[in-house]
Simulated scan of single mutants.
Amino acid sequence: MKTVFAALILMMSTFSFAQSEVYTGYFSSKAVGGYDTVAYFTEGEPVEGKSEFQTKYKGANWYFASQMNLDLFKQDPEKYAPQYGGYCAWAVSAKNDFAKGDPEHWSIVNGKLYLNYNQNIKDKWNQDVPGHIAQGDKNWPTLIAK
């Protein structure tokens, strides 16, 4: 019985699951950890969304701080959704792999939102932002096709 249980655990490892196009965490359906992606552009800082202002997009639930932000997102989700589905931009570019993006470690570059895993990783990202974006844009289509 223990052997069967161990085999099931191995089969359920994170490597056996296909990655979603939008990062939500394992036990959540919230994109960007429930933060309002429009607020990064309008407020210049992360703002937590509210459950009364939400929509579905690319299989995830997106939360917003206001009806106005929800409406802006619905009009043009690609403008406000983070690049690489909210996964860590540095991991996508430098490692050609997935890692969670943290809504507190972000940047907007050329009108696009990028999230990183933590401040240390964001510092690495900041060392060559144009290079990381070029490599990430190249890696992303093959990562989500796996």
Rank of each mutant, 00 (worst) to 15 (best):
S16F: 11
S66C: 02
S93I: 01
G44V: 14
A31H: 13
V32C: 11
V92R: 04
D128P: 11
Q54D: 07
G86Y: 00
P82I: 10
D36M: 09
V92F: 03
Y23H: 15
I144H: 06
S16G: 06
V38N: 04
A99Y: 10
I144G: 02
G86N: 02
D71E: 11
G101T: 05
D123I: 13
K112I: 06
N120V: 13
G111N: 12
Q83R: 08
L70F: 14
S51T: 12
Y63M: 14
N96C: 02
T55L: 00
Y40W: 13
P77N: 05
S93V: 04
A91E: 04
K74G: 02
G111P: 13
M12E: 01
Q127V: 07
S107Q: 15
N69P: 09
V109C: 01
A91D: 02
T3G: 01
V47N: 03
Y26N: 12
A91I: 03
L10D: 07
G34E: 10
Y87W: 02
A60E: 04
K79V: 07
A134N: 08
A6I: 15
T142G: 03
Q135W: 00
P46E: 12
D71C: 00
F17L: 13
E52R: 12
M68K: 14
D137S: 04
K122A: 13
W90D: 07
K146H: 05
E43K: 15
E45V: 13
P130T: 10
G136I: 12
M68H: 09
P82M: 10
A99V: 00
F5V: 15
Q75L: 06
I9M: 15
P77Y: 09
D123L: 07
K50T: 01
Y114F: 12
G131I: 00
V92L: 00
G44W: 12
A99K: 13
I144C: 01
D123M: 03
Q127A: 13
Y35L: 03
N120A: 14
S13H: 11
